[in-house]
């Protein structure tokens, strides 16, 4: 599971539809032919307002006990609603091909 930590964290309590392609399984990605997306949340600027979690059309973002958004990118279609509406510019949605680079960037 070289999938990102974000998706791992969210997965615990979210009853996700256990379907074909889990993000991070390379074969799944190629087979489905669907673009995979990655939601990055910049914690330094996030104020935990909850707008992203409330309006995500695929419920990819959940709030944890502290109200902090946790992203599970498996159902993300890359619509970018959260990115457009984040009042603090703390969300960035990008295609999975540069997902490796993203995690390094964040660290």
């Amino acid at each position: 599971m070289e999938s990102t930590q974000d998706s791992g964290r969210g997965a615990g309590k979210v009853p996700l539809v256990p379907k074909k392609n889990m993000a991070g399984e390379p074969s799944g990605n190629e087979d489905s032919g669907k673009a995979q997306f990655k939601i990055d949340i910049f914690r330094g600027w996030c104020k935990c307002c909850g707008i992203c979690a409330a309006f995500c059309p695929r419920q990819c973002i959940r709030l944890d006990e502290e109200g902090s958004p946790q992203a599970d990118c498996r159902k993300c279609t890359g619509c970018g609603w959260c990115e457009l509406h984040c009042p603090d510019f703390a969300i960035s949605v990008r295609k999975i091909e540069d997902a490796g680079r993203t995690t390094e960037d964040r660290a």
Binding site: G50, L84, P87, D88, F89
Partner: peptide, 9 residues
């Protein structure tokens, strides 16, 4: 601005 404020959007 407050968390969730429209000014940010």
């Amino acid at each position: 601005w407050c968390p969730g404020c429209g000014n940010g959007i």
